[in-house]
Design a protein around this nucleic acid. Structure first.
Lengths: 188, 188
DNA sequence: CCTCTTCTTGTACGTTCGTACAAGTACGAT
DNA sequence: ATCGTACTTGTACGAACGTACAAGAAGAGG
């Protein structure tokens, strides 16, 4: 049984440029989360993606462009997740409690949680990354503002970001009741 | 007029090992704040300190040790500053307002403000750095707890760290009145 | 004075990096 | 079928890296 339409010969892999771009971006995110932007290299990304070194420079003109594309993809993924959050919060009987539950879930993948702060720190240094980082932060704000107003949304999003950073540093689990209470206080 | 007790010959510089250690640590902090831990190199540090490359490896066995010493020094400086904060807050008529004033001052040096987050992110990845980062975060908590209690100190310190991160990303100035109001709310 | 230890410095080694590129393969268009 | 473009891959190159080290200079102790 020889195969159908798009299966390639053995030895050489299938041609699918878009899939390669995506795989490289996904691999880059992983590497960034693991070793940081400053130690992310073409070779580490290629190895993670299971692609040859040359693929990284074929699809992205420079390492910075590769990392920027990866961060963009991470931000897109985050925004999609926030859509799910928005749905949850809309139907939730208790906003603060529901929000803390979502945050707790989010923090169960600490590697992924680091990406946001990696982006923020990079944006603090490099103004070219600031629009992307601001959009990321604005996502949480936009989620909260309809429920609690603009200023409270500012404060709660800062509280959440600060709390998540503390969790990453301590490695401790989230203190849900304390955070819930603080959110309720700020939301009033 | 030939010189006094400790002045060395020309060409070779004076011997002062402790001063060199300190100068290397100080230069390392600057480089870390500018390019991040991952892109900090022996050569950049030596150039910033105005010392030869060999000095970096003579005083610190490895690059990680040099960076760790620099972060330790930054944490010590921070703790000393927090002592000054504590004095200010003790005499302040309005805790929230005084605190926001201190934060606003602190954020006027954005390069320095980045160091805390650089340390936190490094600690999130490398557990060896966690005690140092936790001490840093705990400093703010210890400053606040006598005034507002343990749980409110947790929440306010998270709020402040999150707010400072947002400021670094946006480059915007601090919204003092909004932050003051939020602190008052959480302190109650 | 001499001597030993500590510090200083320039240089060198092997590795890894970003990036370039030639040679080759696949596939749509003609 | 052929041709040309788009993609694939291995390899190469110069630069920068972490670290080691030899040779010398400085200052304390005798």
């Amino acid at each position: 049984m020889t195969n159908g339409v798009t299966t390639p010969r053995a030895g050489r892999r299938s041609r699918d440029p878009q899939a390669r771009r995506d795989a490289l971006a996904a691999a880059t995110i992983e590497i960034v989360a693991e070793v940081g932007i400053g130690r992310t290299t073409h070779r580490a990304v290629a190895a993670r993606a299971g692609l040859p070194l040359g693929a990284t420079t074929y699809y992205f003109p420079t390492l910075d462009a590769l990392i920027a594309a990866a961060l963009q993809k991470a931000a897109d993924d985050q925004e999609a997740d926030l859509q799910v959050w928005a749905d949850h919060l809309r139907d939730a009987p208790d906003l603060a409690e529901a929000l803390v539950g979502l945050v707790d879930d989010y923090m169960s993948d600490r590697r992924r949680a680091r990406i946001e702060f990696e982006l923020c720190l990079a944006a603090a240094r490099d103004t070219a990354l600031r629009p992307l980082a601001q959009d990321w932060l604005q996502g949480l704000h936009a989620l909260l503002a309809p429920h609690v107003g603009d200023e409270a949304a500012d404060n709660i999003s800062a509280l959440l970001d600060g709390t998540m950073l503390h969790l990453l540093v301590t490695g401790a689990p989230l203190n849900a009741s304390a955070l819930t209470a603080a959110i309720r206080t700020l939301a009033a």
